[in-house]
Computed example of a mutant assay.
Amino acid sequence: MENVIRPLIVAGGAVVITLVVGWAVDQAVRRIGRRHPESPLWGPLRRCRVPFQLALCAALLRGAYGYAHIARDHRAAVGQALVLFLIAACAWLAVRVAAAVVESSYARFASTNQDAARVRRVRTQVTLIQRVVSVTVGVVAVAAMLLTFPAMRTIGASLLASAGIIGIVAGVAAQSTLANVFAGLQIAFGDIVRIGDVGVFEGEWGTVEEITLTYLVVRTWDERRITMPVSYFTSKPFENWSRNNPRMTGTVFFHLDHATPIDLMREHLHDILKDCAEWDGRAWGLVITDTTPTTIQVRALATAKDADDIWNLRCILREQLIAWLRHEHPYALPRINTAPAPGLAEAPDREAAAPRSNDMGPGPGNR
């Protein structure tokens, strides 16, 4: 009976202490957050409660399991399991703490900086830094777990001796993966592309939604997701419409008749823009850019604050100008000449049109 009661007392005591300490720490963090609302650290730090409690409970059990008088045959296995659990909980806690610090730093920067492009750049950098920290902590935790086994410690020397060969083989085998990793770091700190950037990627217009160390996710206008390797952005050209400033200039082309009243059309374009919320008021214009024997090409130009507004503005100008031409000046719309070709009776007199022999000028035959 004692072999059952002792383990229950040890386990129950560790759980109770863990719950009490976890609750006390959470209340303290919440109280500090209320006293210092200007600091965004305390909110994300409360998410560390669960990994903190798991790490504390594992540490208490690991330190007190000897007093539970567990059978000698199971003592080594229980101790090994508790050590592995403690390492995993500590790694989780470290990742959560790092994420809280990174998120609070980004939130503080975003709240005090009005430059949207710089905020997106910092967001991209801190996101990749957080991923690097998570991967590093995970690798260290796995290595620490493996080193807790005696067999792994005995072969550590041989592993270190062959590390150079293994590194060369792994580097050759994972050449593309390593290229993507270095490209991800170059994107993060080289400011090539950032989360939230709008542009054209492989012929698709979209917004950069996520950047990792190996791939990048682009959300298209029709809500599709395109996953691309980050090495693409360091080896091929692409259009970034919000690199430094998201403002854009849009154009709409019309093919119209030569009799189109350009001055009236220009005035109506200005009236449309003054009532349009998408126009940012920077520039506008309407000019003839080309002409053919049957039509003229008219270009309407306007500006907007970003890519979404410029798309809507171009559609509005196209619809309203065509409707205005159709109702007010239908003759300005292009027409196809369907009149029949002149017949033989309407054709000019060929004999009268033919050049006379005495009109050909001096020559050997006219002398």
Rank of each mutant, 00 (worst) to 15 (best):
A14P: 02
L19Q: 00
L19H: 05
A24S: 14
A28I: 00
V29Y: 07
R30A: 11
R35D: 05
P40Q: 02
L41S: 00
L41P: 01
R47A: 08
R49Y: 02
R62V: 02
A64W: 10
Y67L: 13
A76N: 05
A77T: 06
L86K: 04
A88Y: 04
W92P: 06
L93Q: 00
L93V: 03
V97C: 00
A99L: 06
V101T: 01
S105G: 13
A110F: 05
R121C: 07
V122M: 07
Q125F: 01
T127I: 00
V133T: 05
V140C: 01
V140A: 08
A141V: 05
A144Y: 03
P150T: 03
M152G: 09
G156I: 10
G164V: 11
G164R: 11
G167Y: 12
V169H: 00
A174C: 03
A179R: 08
F182D: 11
G196P: 01
D197G: 09
D197R: 06
G199M: 11
V200S: 08
E202G: 14
E204F: 12
W205S: 14
T214L: 11
R219W: 11
W221A: 08
R224N: 08
I226A: 10
M228G: 11
Y232L: 13
N240P: 03
P246V: 04
G250P: 07
D257C: 12
M265K: 07
H268C: 10
L273F: 10
K274F: 07
K274V: 06
G285R: 01
L286D: 14
I288W: 00
I288E: 12
T291C: 12
A300L: 03
A300C: 07
A302V: 13
A304G: 08
K305G: 15
D309V: 14
D309N: 15
I310N: 09
L313D: 05
R314M: 15
A323G: 07
H329W: 06
A332T: 08
A341F: 03
A341G: 00
L344P: 01
A347C: 06
D349L: 15
A352Y: 02
A353N: 06
A354C: 09
P355R: 15
P355Y: 10
M360Q: 14
G361T: 00
R367F: 07
